[in-house]
């Protein structure tokens, strides 16, 4: 690795192209497509009334999820947010079981009890999305405390949005992670808005990463739509965490294309702003262009990925439709570990 890195530095290649094989890079593209098509599929199913409740789509933020998760092992853990489909897939979840969860089936990751907002895959280290803004941040710090005490070498990533940086839980968590030098990486996916409120209106600092100084940890800003840049920051933070040097705050600047949730009049931002991000800064398009430029893939290869992803999504939806609904008599199942009268 180290020699590859050196060679790359000389050749001026972006980080990811020195770190990952072509096969790995093609798989990153595939997964970015998988995230996007999964969310489009979920949105479509929602419109048709196959899914109830609400959902928050991360379309436009795929590079951030993939860049952060790429250096993580299956043993490493994450906590996620209400906008957590991308994190889940990037951490290795099977879209079949995600769709099944959205359809409320027992074959879903949460056996139909959680839905979109609580999607989790504990087997792959995803400790769960969260309905409470900033709710997952202290939990990640707790998981990092376990990792340190148990000496198991795990690192933990806590994903959260820009809006979460104004909750007390955020500040308390960063402080504790820092004083105890815990192996946790705080990843703020700054998409410019917490629901309708821009960071300029909600937050007293220009960059969320500026908050890091108050808690004596590095604060790193990356272009969240550039896979390689995100991955590079993630690698550095994970290395620091594994070395016992403590936490890092990464601010990944990105954008969500869709409204906040199912209903959103987009009154707080302009059409031009949305279109600008979609046409000029789309993370998948940018990555594809780069991959082609560096000879990692050609148009045929991209087409093959798209087709393969479309098949996987279609199969996932079929799997979800076929699964059984929970029994009403099982209403109180999972409330306690052992049944309580």
């Amino acid at each position: 690795m180290a020699t590859a890195k050196k060679a790359a530095e000389q050749s001026n290649l972006p980080f990811a192209y020195t770190q990952y094989s072509h096969e790995q890079l093609r798989d990153v593209l595939r997964k970015m497509y998988l995230i996007r098509r999964f969310e489009e599929g979920a949105e479509d199913s929602y419109m048709r009334g196959l899914i109830h409740g609400t959902m928050h789509l991360s379309i436009g933020q795929e590079a951030s999820a993939m860049g952060i998760c790429m250096p993580l092992t299956d043993e490493d853990q994450i906590t996620s947010t209400h906008r957590g489909h991308g994190h889940s897939i990037a951490k290795g979840a099977d879209v079949k079981k995600m769709f099944a969860e959205f359809f409320g089936k027992t074959t879903g990751y949460c056996k139909g009890r959680g839905g979109s907002m609580h999607i989790a895959d504990v087997s792959k280290g995803n400790l769960g999305a969260n309905g409470i803004v900033a709710g997952g941040i202290p939990i990640a710090v707790g998981a990092a405390l376990s990792a340190k005490r148990l000496g198991n070498g795990k690192v933990v990533v806590s994903f959260f949005g820009d809006g979460a940086n104004n909750e007390g839980a955020f500040h308390e968590s960063l402080n504790m992670a820092s004083i105890w030098k815990l192996p946790v990486i705080f990843v703020c996916e700054n998409n410019g808005y917490g629901m309708s409120t821009s960071t300029a209106r909600s937050t007293a600092v220009a960059n969320i990463a500026d908050r890091a100084a108050a808690y004596s940890m590095p604060g790193v800003i990356v272009d969240g739509n550039n896979f390689s840049e995100v991955a590079e920051a993630s690698h550095a933070a994970i290395e620091r965490a594994r070395a016992g040097e403590g936490p890092t705050l990464i601010e990944s600047k990105t954008y969500r294309y869709r409204g906040h949730s199912k209903s959103d009049r987009n009154r707080y931002r302009t059409k031009e702003e949305i279109e600008d991000w979609m046409t000029n800064r789309d993370p998948i398009t940018l990555f594809e262009t780069e991959l082609k430029e560096f000879g990692v893939i050609d148009d045929k290869g991209i087409e093959a990925i798209r087709e393969d992803v479309a098949r996987e999504i279609a199969e996932g939806i079929e799997f979800a439709k076929e699964g059984p609904m929970p029994e009403i008599s099982d209403l109180a199942q999972f409330v306690y570990t052992e049944e309580v009268a």
Binding site: H52, G53, E101, G104, C110, G112, R113, G114, G115, M117, H118, M325, P326, I328, L331, A332, V335
Partner: peptide, 16 residues
């Protein structure tokens, strides 16, 4: 209400 958090599945939700 039943002695459970509110479930996501619509049928369970009604039953709760």
């Amino acid at each position: 209400g039943a002695e459970t958090p509110i479930p996501y599945n619509p049928e369970l939700e009604k039953a709760a």
